[in-house]
Structures are given as C-alpha cells and as structure tokens.
Design a protein around this nucleic acid. Structure first.
Lengths: 296, 296
DNA sequence: CTAAAGAATAGATAAAAATCTATTGTTTGT
DNA sequence: ACAAACAATAGATTTTTATCTATTCTTTAG
C-alpha cells in the first residue's frame, strides 16, 4: 500500500469529472501534476484505473472499485475530523466520573443539570468507597473523582467545590433529639454506627473525636450510607454523616440532626484529578460547572 | 486533512502497543521517528491522541475515535487491494456483453458455460439490433460485442469465432418444403418476411440476393426473430435466418429448412471491440473462451 | 538516591514526492 | 488538412517528509 490519500483525492476528482484538465482546474494544479498522481496510483495498484478511447475517458472496473473505496475512505476521515471537532466543542463526548458513596445524594443532580446543558455528552458515573476511588484515580481510569477530602499519597489537583457539612443523626425519639448544644463527649458515650474503615465519613468521624481526645464505641460498621440510615432509624444508635445524605428525608422523616457543640463540622467536597493529566474538554467543562456552582 | 496514511499506520501500532519504543521495533524504525509521526498526526488533528501519566501511555477520547477510523480506513484499503487482485485473477469481475438479436440462441448457452467456469464473475447481456450495437460499440459501453458481420465504419478488432449458417425457412406444408436444390431465383419470387433494415440478417439477405442480381419482394418487415418465425409459421411466406435460431424447434416443429442452391450461406459470428481498448481480464478470458470453442 | 527505561526534543541529513514549464501525441470537428 | 482540445511525457526544481543520532527529561523500581 504505497499510495497516498492525496492520490486518492486527485483520482476521485478525475473520476468524477472524467477529465485530467478539469480536475486540475478544480484542484488548482496543472494537468501534468494531476496526471502523474493518478498514474502513480495506478502503478501502486498494479492496473489502470482510467482508459481513454478517443477523447473520452472511462473508468475501468478497477477504477470503479477504487473510486468506491476512495470515497468510503475519504468520507470516513472527514467524519473523523468532524467528530473530533465536536469533541472539542462539547457537542459530543464522554465524561467518566467516579464519586464516593457519600456524594451519591449530591452529584447525580449536578450531573443531570450538566448533561441537560450539553445534550451530546454521555456520562459514566462510578460509585465506590474512598479506597477504591483512590486506586482508580492512580490508574487514570476516570476523568474526575469526587471525594470528601483530598487524597494524601497521590499527586493530584484537588479543588473544593461545595460544602459538605457533617452532622450527628439520631432517630426522632432518641433521648437527645430535643436537647440543645450537646457536648461531643456525650455523643462519644452513645452507640455509634459508622461506615467501614477506608470510607471518608469514617475517617472524618474518627479524626473529629481524636481531636477532642475521644475514642467512641463503634457498635455497628456498615457498608453503605443507606444501611447506616436504616440502622439509625431502627434505633440502634447515632451516626455521623454528610448532611446531604438526609436531603430526601427532610424534617418529616424518622431521623433528626442533633444540635451538637462544634457541629455541623464544615467539610468540603473535592473534585480531583492526577496532576499532569490532560483533561478532556468535557471534563474541563464539568469542572468549571462544579466550580461555578460554588458561587451560586 | 493534512495527515498521511503512514501516520495512521504508525499511530495504530502505537495505540495497540501503548508504547512508542515497542511500536518502533515492530515497524523497524527508531523511537523518535515513530514519536514524530504520531506528534504530527496529533498536530494535524488539533488535539492529543495519547497522553502519558507516569510511565503509562493512555489513549485520549480523540485517540480512540481516531484509532477506530484508522482501522476502518486501512482495512478498506486493504480489502480494495484484495479485490483488485481478484479482479485480475478472474475470481471476481463483471463482463458486459452486447449481442445482436440473432445471436440470442447461441450466446446465452456459451455465456452460461463461461460463468459456470468462473463463479465469481457476473455478466450483463444486452440484446439489440445491429445498428444499436454499433453505436454502443462506438460509445465504449460494453466490453465485447457479438454480431454477424464485422462493423465497417468503426475501427475495431473483430474476430470470427463460430459458424453462422444462413438458411431459408418455410412452413412444413409450404409447396417447396420437400423440393430439392431449389434455385435462389425461385425463392426470390416468393413472399419474403425479413427483419427490419439495420439488422444484420436483413443486410445479409439483401446482399445474397443482390449478388445474384435479384430483388426479392419483402412482404413483411418485423422487429424480432420470434415475430418472423411466427409469421412464417402462420404461412405468410418464407424467411432467411440464422440456423441457430431454429435450434429449439428441431425437426418436430412447424418450420422446415429449404434445400436451396448455394445455401446454407456460410457466414460467421464475430466478436468485436474498439481497437486500442484495454480489455478487462474478464473480457479477455471470455474472448479466449469463445475462440477456444471454435476448435471444439 | 540512583540507575534504568522510556518519552520527548533538537538538529542534521538524506530521500522522496509534488509540482512546474515545455513539449509532444492524439483525436475530433470544421 | 488544420486548428483546437486534451492527454501524455520529459526534465528540472523545489519543497516536504521521514528518518537518523544524540541528548535531555521524566518516572519508577530497587
């Protein structure tokens, strides 16, 4: 396959106009230039593509086959260029997003709004715990990662983009439900229900207690936020979790946010990516979208 | 679209191996050579196709799109080369054949045998009268043309390849049906039914009579051989036609070949093409097939 | 922290490709 | 028979391209 795209293009023009001279005009070349290109293509392919009988040019069988393939090929490449342009212009593209479980109540709504704004863009959302996410981050599997605290052992660019208040939650009929300004010490005495080790919420909770020299009793360790809420609703104890997680429950539900001293703990949501990674236009746009939301 | 097929090929190798160095080995090039090719492709396309994070190479979205198109394109061109090779090897191809109406009873059988021998080859058979055929010949519409006498005003290569005996036919109960050695003069006195002017049979008949100084009465002038036979069968007169035309009727039918002095007139079938035309491999093969048949 | 491996860049050079002008062939219509 | 129109060839020239060697940069594994 010793021929060039240029030769295919020139040949296509000649085949369409059935004239070297007219093709030359169209391509802003001289007639010999066009002739040579076609000739070389013929030599590469090992057989004539055009034949002249008298003044008239005709395509040979091989010429017809070649013309068809030339069109196919040139069109495919043109379509590629359009797709790439679209990719850059946010008209098309894919966003691979990975988030910690806790962010499940915050991100999907934002992502929905984003996709509505850019209808050509498909999104893949992976939900996992912090540990899994960090290893995905290191493996460059996702465009962007959302978590409750910046990674520590990976070199990333992490930007806070939303508040992530951490609150203590109890069932509505819990003895502390109507107390005011509860001391953290008091909470540490209660049965606590928390996410598994390796989760961001667990990390944050442990850090909070440690800062006050406390070591709470973790009665239950559960693998999902929903499970934790169910356990609290079942009266098994208190929990510390992201206020966003309660969004759907509202005032009316079984659960109550306790008024604990020093809470809500003002944490932030972070969006992160590997330092040096070249963000796709789509990822860039979603990042901007998140940061713009911060100002709302 | 300023990039080359070579760049696509190199890029495909790099994308597959996810390594410039290994791609370079595979392509028997140096690593910088490979690197520059991909770099230039990226520049042509206006965005990076590969990104490096640490030691690992990754395809970008644009890279994935480009790789898909590169495969599509390179495969299409490879298939083209195979098709062209087949074309030359008689494994595939098209034969455009045009024949005079009179040859309708001879050629299709030959063409059938030919197509059976070369199963990949499709044939188009056009049946027309001599006049139409000559203009098609001049316009280079068909690969080969079969007629009862070589064209006179067109520069062609015409080769005889089969006998084409011309006979006088009457209905079985015609007064002359059982006569022997009938004089041509006698025939000229009968009502004659002939094909239209411009047809080969008509031309041959007129020439035959003219050679003997005769001017026969053409009572009926019909547009097809079938019509002529029907008219003869209807008892409307005699006709002069190619013996092949009677092949299907045989001895059992209504029609009889008269024993006329100097007949059957030994004419020939000719296959012709424009001088200088480059015959396709298929046409060449069919020509050989016809000429080989002559010796059987 | 160092060595190894691979990627990226620079600069030089050799090869090839594309194009041009000029000219010659060939066919057709007048 | 001639002119016009187009195709085909020749030869020269210019530009582009592909490639190489040498080197530097970057990351990772030990």
């Amino acid at each position: 396959m010793r021929f060039s795209l240029h030769q295919l293009r020139v040949f296509a023009a000649v085949a369409r106009l059935l004239s070297y001279t007219r093709a030359a005009e169209e391509l802003h070349l001289t007639q010999p230039a066009v002739f040579t290109q076609v000739k070389q293509l013929e030599e590469s392919l090992g057989q004539p593509l055009l034949e002249r009988l008298g003044k008239q040019l005709f395509l040979t069988d091989a010429g017809r086959e070649t013309l068809a393939t030339a069109h196919e090929t040139l069109n495919a490449l043109e379509r590629l260029e359009m797709r790439l342009a679209d990719l850059q212009g946010l008209k098309r593209g894919r966003l691979r997003l990975a988030i910690v479980t806790t962010a499940e109540s915050l991100i999907p709504r934002l992502l929905g709004a984003f996709c509505q704004q850019y209808p050509g863009i498909d999104a893949t959302l992976t939900v996992a715990n912090r540990e899994t996410l960090l290893s995905r981050l290191a493996d460059n599997i996702d465009d962007l990662v959302v978590l409750g605290a910046p990674p520590e052992h990976i070199d990333v660019v992490a930007t806070a983009f939303a508040d992530n208040p951490l609150v203590v939650v109890a069932r509505h009929d819990h003895p502390l439900a109507n107390s005011r300004a509860i001391a953290l010490t008091r909470i540490a005495e209660e049965s606590l229900i928390l996410r598994e080790a390796g989760s961001g919420t667990r990390l944050a909770a442990e850090r909070l207690f440690a800062e006050h020299g406390l070591e709470p009793r973790v009665r239950l360790e559960l693998g999902s936020n929903e499970a934790v809420k169910q356990a609290v609703a079942g009266g098994l104890g208190l929990t510390l979790l992201s206020a966003h997680t309660l969004a759907l429950e509202g005032e009316s539900g079984l659960l109550r946010v306790l008024d604990v001293e020093g809470l809500p703990l003002l944490r932030q949501w972070y969006v992160a990516y590997l330092r040096g990674k070249h963000l796709s236009v789509v990822a860039e746009a979603f990042l901007d979208f998140l940061l713009a939301g911060q100002r709302r």
